[in-house]
Amino acid sequence: MKDTLTIEEREDIEIDLLLQAIYSVSGFDFRKYMRSSIKRRVENRMRLDHIRRISGMIEMVLYEKGYVEKLLKDFSINVTEMFRDPDFFKAFRMNIVPLLKNLPEIRIWHAGCSTGEEAFSMAIILKEEGLYDKARIYATDMNEDVLRHAEKGILPLNRMQSYTKNYLHAGGNQEFSEYYTTDYQYAYLDPNLLKNIVFFQHNLVTDGSFNEFHIIMCRNVMIYFTSELQTYVNQLFYDSLCKDGFLAVGSKETLHTSSFSEDYEDFDAKERIYRKL
């Protein structure tokens, strides 16, 4: 029988086997992530570790202690900043916050929170609007390392100038510097901002619902998922939202092309904020 497989087809087979090995060893499932994103991260790790073939990486996952954890860090998406996309947070403050004021308690889930910047931003908005004391923010990620970092509330000092601009653009009405102290290298958030944020590990691919929420934020995460996985995660969010709850996704994400398009109304189409019907 003639072998007609191309190099690309062989690499696709190897990636399938690599992701299966990672799942078998760690329980973390990347088999339904967008293949282009995974392939870029695999190729980068191969360059760093001077590995010629993906099959060599599979062997290291199976037999080299600690190697799978290295790959899990590579695959985790950790791009974030405070008040990222300021127009979104401004719309949230102006249009959703007034609807929260009559609630006896407010439960918010930041799914895929990375190092916590968006959760910190939410805490600031709620504090300024007099709602923080009755709010609980659940900030989750699959990556335990970023969660441990987030819990400390420590930010790079060289990012604070751009964060201040974002905050003001997002409708901030205080001196942003009141929310942190500094040394020569870092900014340390006011501990009062952290008191109602709970950071813990949750994997959107394998873990289920853990509460009922008024708001779920999952912005710029599902762009890395296949359509099948997006459907699964959207079902998780739908099941986790209370009646009239809000789901916020990223600027490049939408529910319009999903099977859930009839289950939500466009509360703010521009900022990708949907309300459960």
Rank of each mutant, 00 (worst) to 15 (best):
residue 210 F to C: 06
residue 153 G to N: 00
residue 211 N to F: 10
residue 37 S to K: 03
residue 118 E to G: 06
residue 98 P to W: 08
residue 14 E to G: 01
residue 110 H to Y: 12
residue 186 Y to H: 13
residue 97 V to Y: 02
residue 186 Y to C: 09
residue 195 K to M: 05
residue 199 F to V: 04
residue 162 S to M: 14
residue 83 F to M: 07
residue 195 K to Q: 11
residue 160 M to K: 09
residue 28 F to D: 10
residue 17 L to V: 09
residue 12 D to N: 15
residue 230 Q to F: 02
residue 214 H to M: 01
residue 90 K to P: 03
residue 214 H to R: 07
residue 149 H to Q: 15
residue 72 L to T: 12
residue 93 R to G: 05
residue 235 Q to H: 10
residue 18 L to T: 03
residue 93 R to M: 06
residue 115 T to R: 13
residue 35 R to W: 01
residue 204 L to N: 12
residue 75 F to H: 05
residue 7 I to T: 11
residue 210 F to W: 07
residue 114 S to F: 09
residue 235 Q to D: 14
residue 201 Q to D: 06
residue 185 Q to G: 00
residue 183 D to Q: 04
residue 212 E to C: 08
residue 87 D to V: 12
residue 122 M to D: 05
residue 137 I to N: 03
residue 213 F to Q: 07
residue 41 R to T: 00
residue 185 Q to L: 12
residue 4 T to D: 03
residue 99 L to T: 12
residue 105 E to S: 15
residue 212 E to W: 11
residue 3 D to C: 01
residue 6 T to P: 05
residue 254 T to E: 10
residue 247 L to C: 08
residue 65 K to E: 13
residue 68 V to T: 15
residue 175 E to A: 11
residue 189 L to E: 00
residue 206 T to M: 13
residue 57 M to Q: 01
residue 94 M to H: 13
residue 193 L to E: 02
residue 188 Y to Q: 00
residue 251 S to H: 14
residue 166 N to Y: 04
residue 225 F to C: 07
residue 204 L to H: 08
residue 158 N to E: 12
residue 183 D to M: 01
residue 141 D to S: 13
residue 191 P to A: 03
residue 211 N to T: 02
residue 84 R to V: 11
residue 9 E to T: 02
residue 27 G to N: 04
residue 204 L to R: 04
residue 110 H to L: 05
residue 30 F to Y: 13
residue 260 F to W: 06
residue 245 G to D: 06
residue 18 L to A: 01
residue 101 K to H: 06
residue 161 Q to R: 13
residue 239 D to K: 12
residue 147 L to Q: 02
residue 202 H to L: 14
residue 5 L to N: 07
residue 234 N to Y: 15
residue 97 V to P: 10
residue 46 M to E: 04
residue 274 Y to S: 01
residue 7 I to Y: 04
residue 13 I to A: 01
residue 41 R to Q: 04
residue 113 C to D: 08
